[in-house]
Design a protein around this nucleic acid. Structure first.
Length: 236
DNA sequence: AGAGACTTCACCTCCAGTGT
DNA sequence: ACACTGGAGGTGAAGTCTCT
């Protein structure tokens, strides 16, 4: 984030809206001098709370980005995601599912990728799984998942995976923070994902009818699976 | 551990400069 | 003259340090 650039953007938007510093600061109840500091790139003397409120009054999204050693932070975050995917692949395979990780699609320009796609020939069941290590933009995540549920079954029908039963699952790392996010949007999650972790596991063994589940996977379960996996590969 | 001194932070007040 | 803005200095709250 370039402080001077942020300030210039705020000023430009405010002027475009034909508002004075006073008008904007009155609107959010923060002194005009704070907005002046912000517009002049002195972000270090303004609280994040004040900056967000002032930007909000102008319709500006203030995005804070954390970086670490170039792309290393992505790899760091991906490790947790990859471990969860690996855990699920292992589990699904043992339950007799045919599993495909990172299924990418392009349906007339409607692009995306599914973390895990699984097929159970016996029940003709199709499973679409979204894996999340942290729950951030819920709205975008739910929209993305419903789009995949709409598009993917039609695309995979071409390979003979014509489903009688459809499962969609949001698999989330069972951290305190994630559980807290779910609790604070309980009614939204209850409506979107009526089934929980226990039902999700049971469904994998016997996918008799459509399911929509939210499944918390603990870090301990993932680590346990990894140890077992290693023993399987290397018996020493 | 608790109390008081000190420092820092976030914001406010006020005044001076600039442009119309 | 007036509106708008920048910025120095003030203020209260919160945090940190130091001493007992």
């Amino acid at each position: 984030m370039n402080d001077l650039r942020v300030g210039r953007i705020i000023r430009a938007v405010r002027r475009r809206l034909r508002l004075t510093q006073q008008a904007v600061s009155d609107k959010v109840g923060i002194d005009r001098s704070v907005l002046s500091d912000l517009e002049n790139g002195r972000l270090e003397v303004v609280s994040l709370r004040a900056a967000r409120r002032l930007c909000g009054a102008l319709g500006i999204d203030l995005v804070i980005e954390a970086r670490w050693r170039g792309g290393a932070v992505d790899r760091l975050l991906d490790q947790g995601h990859a471990a969860m995917v690996e855990y699920l692949v292992d589990l699904l395979t043992r339950e007799g599912w045919i599993v495909e990780a990172e299924f990418t699609f392009n349906d007339y320009g409607d692009r995306g990728s599914v973390d895990l796609l699984a097929w159970q020939p016996g029940r003709r069941a199709l499973l679409i799984v979204e894996v999340k290590t942290s729950l951030t933009d819920l709205q975008a995540m739910l929209m993305s998942l419903s789009r995949k549920v709409r598009v993917v079954p039609r695309l995979v029908a071409a390979r003979g995976w014509r489903r009688d039963v459809l499962g969609r699952m949001l698999v989330v790392a069972g951290t305190t923070a994630n559980r807290s996010v779910v609790r604070s949007h309980q009614s939204l999650f209850d409506t979107t994902f009526p089934a929980g972790s226990r039902s999700a596991r049971a469904w994998l063994r016997d996918p008799a009818e459509d399911v929509s589940a939210l499944w918390f996977v603990s870090d301990e379960a993932v680590r346990h699976s990894k140890r077992r996996g290693r023993r399987g590969v290397d018996p020493t």
